[in-house]
Design a protein around this nucleic acid. Structure first.
Length: 203
DNA sequence: ATCAAGATTACCT
DNA sequence: GGTAATCTTGATA
């Protein structure tokens, strides 16, 4: 359940070290306002990307037009388009100029589920269990939340998209693994997820 | 100007 | 479990 202690995360949360921020994002609530509607979901799976020594990171080869948002200070939204079809949403982390981010890989829907169904499937949900297929992947959650290129660079300290604080998870509730879908720096154990959560993208 | 790769997904057997 | 789809970006000429 969602705690009553629902304060928006501040800049200081995001400007800490990468792996601390990545782990601490688990269990927090991503919120997006779209008109009068509110969409929200609990973060249940993330991956860390570091610009300096992580060859899988978009920022590894330095700043380009595509990845420039990654070089902001922590607390900005980095959205990119990939495979000709999908957007992926990241939280920029650390100090200005570093090129560090956390990819949000999966959410557990909380508010605005009707809108998410509409965004993902055009309004029709054939099987009840399809709810588990709404936001259990980086491209899927962007589609469900209506996140696209226009949201690249959004300040998460603002009111359009932000993340609500929640009690910190115990370490035995968090799973760790290699990252998914990359071909370089494959051995880093930088994927974190909530153990047993049904909305995690893969086992 | 051309080209290959990609932090994925959906659909097929 | 395998793979086609699809197009933007960044690198190379």
């Amino acid at each position: 359940m969602i705690s009553n202690k629902t304060k928006k995360l501040k800049r200081e949360f995001y400007t800490r070290s990468l792996l601390f921020v990545a782990r601490d994002l688990l269990g927090k609530i991503l919120v997006k306002k779209s008109g009068s509607k509110i969409l929200s979901g609990k973060i249940v799976e993330v991956e860390a990307y570091h610009g300096d020594y992580d060859q899988a990171s978009h920022a590894y080869k330095g700043k380009t037009k595509r990845n420039e948002v990654m070089f902001n200070e922590g607390g900005y939204f980095y959205v990119y388009f990939t495979y000709g079809a999908h957007f992926c949403a990241n939280v920029v982390v650390g100090k200005k100029g570093k090129g560090i981010a956390v990819l949000i890989r999966a959410l557990e829907p909380v508010e605005g589920i009707d809108v998410m169904i509409k965004n993902r499937f055009g309004g029709k949900l054939i099987h009840e269990k399809e709810n588990y297929n709404l936001t259990n992947g980086p491209g899927k959650l962007c589609k469900a939340f209506g996140i696209n290129k226009n949201h690249n660079g959004t300040d998460l300290i603002g009111n359009e998209i932000y993340i609500l604080d929640q009690p910190k998870l115990r370490s035995n509730e968090i799973g760790v693994s290699k990252r998914i879908g990359i071909t370089r720096s494959v051995d880093l154990q930088w994927r974190f997820f909530i153990k047993g959560n049904l909305f995690v993208s893969r086992k």
